[in-house]
Design a protein around this nucleic acid. Structure first.
Lengths: 339, 339
DNA sequence: CTGAAAGCGCTAACAT
DNA sequence: ATGTTAGCGCTTTCAG
């Protein structure tokens, strides 16, 4: 069973080296030979054995995406899968395989080193949730081709790409100001929540740029949860001078925010505008439908694919950069009051 | 660079066959030799080359999950990723790699055949969305180890496992009857929507079992979309004798259903109960929080892992079966009126 | 433009 | 219990 390169060579009356060359598109083979060998390959239904090629070529054109896949992550973190899809799309286009592996933060360093040592993969895309200083050390010491999806929150020489959340925050504030909302509140997660904080940072920087002074009590921190969004929003709308719009650091907060406003009797978007980040499909199901600053995480995954292949080809490449095209999706929770 | 089995053999003063045997846990090696070889392997930081092993063993312990990964699928189909996670969990436990590959229905047959022919993978998990008669033919003719996730909707000898939606429908009706809701309506997707229809089938069969007669106008078909859910529900609650509870074939319908009921002035769950299928995290964000018949799709993926490995080991095994553990999650949209 | 031959690193009969 | 050796199927110098 199994027709091999030898069979093809014999049948075509050439050496296996020649067959190999036509398979791999060498220029040094005559057109006639190429045609003949191709015919024979088709006739014999020959398919080069990937396992043998991998051994000979010292590569298996495989990237593994390591992340943490607890139960329900499909529901709680759709963005991760969206990135994964972008990644898959690019890699398969380049004839690379994407393998998916779930790991805990503790397991990550040893698993990655081992997997690389045994030559199961050419490189790794590492989800930021798996980061640790130990991992950083392991990766660096062993010169493992890698790319982190998300910026490390510690000094690191790992390669990474990430969404520019600060920029997204700027976009949010800029858009709201352009709509005519002159004062903006922000409700965010805990101060340790980097994404939330970066978005806030962007908002504040844009506000400053437009010379709007920001009262301290227009900024609230809580949990990334609906009830927290409800409470923080309640505090804000009870203020003497309440803001004209509220920016929510994420969707969970936003759902609570909307509920609080509705229950208070105020109307969205006339009395108060609401803007959040990341477009969940459910944003469209809410009443009112939420306007959002959308971030193309599929594209982030796609870029990750491009970059990891660069790194695999040239281990000296070092990448640390923000990649984003945030765009505003205006729906019902904001209006342009200026026209 | 790269320490090989030869280096280990030389250093340990044995043959490479012996080293190979200790790597693969052969019983016929003395304890002393095993210990010595292990020491040397550690000392030399030796790691067996997977690519060489794959070639020699004629296997690369790899399963590929083929499905369709258009943009936004992370948001629109979290269930698929949940299955994928279960699958990954089982496969990695058995030291198999899971590769992810996006395909269109048209591409599937050739890609799968080619991938199998070139020996990139040992088997395939195929998402039902990729099914076609041509695929069926390709798979069968070439005896490709496979397992479809979802029942084919045509006569097929492929292996598959699926959620038992009829059973889920039975559970739904049984639960509602037990709560004291004596008459049940059902709003579903189009008649072509097999999932919806199977759930309805289960509902009806359970109703019959309890000798409750089901008026035709208690059953409505529409689109799997909120506005459709809204309309169908409106029709139902305007009926002279409206049902005591409504079963929605899926969450999209359910959101519209809830809105229609609320706008009509009726209260959930007192005036009318609402039950749907599949627990989306957003079911908890709605007011009222939705009671659901939950289906463990993670587990379905896990079972798929078990079964594809059986099939890979023994190509003669043929599997066509329903796998489910639906369970009720009671929240606010239903009450037990019986106690 | 083509071929001979030496790997790639490991496994698995078959001997001993 | 251990070693010899023939593969596994392809790539890649190096000659010619």
């Amino acid at each position: 069973m199994g027709v091999t390169i030898k069979d093809v060579a014999r049948e075509a009356g050439v050496s296996i080296a020649t067959v190999s060359k036509v398979i791999n598109g060498s220029y040094s083979i005559s057109k006639e030979t190429i045609a003949r060998v191709n015919d024979v390959m088709k006739k014999l239904d020959y398919h080069p054995n990937t396992r043998a090629r991998n051994l000979a070529q010292k590569s298996n054109r495989t990237i593994v995406f390591v992340t943490s896949l607890e139960k329900n992550v499909g529901f709680t973190n759709p963005h991760m899968f969206e990135m994964m899809c972008g990644l898959e799309n690019y890699l398969s286009k380049k004839d690379y395989s994407l393998v998916l592996r779930s790991l805990t933060t503790d397991e990550a360093p040893d698993y990655i080193k081992e997997t690389f040592d045994v030559k199961k993969a050419d490189g790794f895309i590492i989800h930021a949730s798996l980061l640790s200083e130990k991992l950083d050390e392991t990766i660096s010491k062993n010169e493992i081709p890698h790319l982190v999806l998300g910026m490390p929150n510690f000094e690191s020489h790992m390669s990474w790409i990430d969404v520019n959340n600060k920029h997204a925050g700027e976009i949010a504030a800029k858009y709201l100001l352009a709509c005519g909302y002159c004062s903006l509140a922000f409700i965010g997660g805990r101060p340790e929540d980097k994404i939330s904080m970066n978005r806030l940072e962007g908002v504040l920087s844009m506000l400053k740029e437009h010379d709007v002074v920001q009262p301290q009590n227009y900024i609230k921190y809580g949990e990334s949860a609906t009830n927290s969004g409800f409470e923080l929003t309640s505090e804000i709308i009870e203020l003497d001078h309440r803001p004209e719009a509220i920016i929510c650091a994420n969707n969970y907060l936003a759902y609570g925010c909307v509920r609080a406003i509705k229950e208070s009797g105020l109307t969205i978007p006339k009395d108060i505008g609401v803007l959040t980040f990341d477009d969940f499909p459910f944003s469209k199901l809410l009443a009112p439908q939420l306007s959002v600053v959308n971030i193309d995480v599929y594209d982030l995954g796609y870029e990750a694919g491009k970059n990891i292949l660069k790194i695999v080809r040239n281990p000296n490449v070092h990448i640390q950069s923000y990649i984003t095209n945030p765009n505003i999706i205006q729906r019902e929770s904001t209006v342009n009051n200026m026209r």
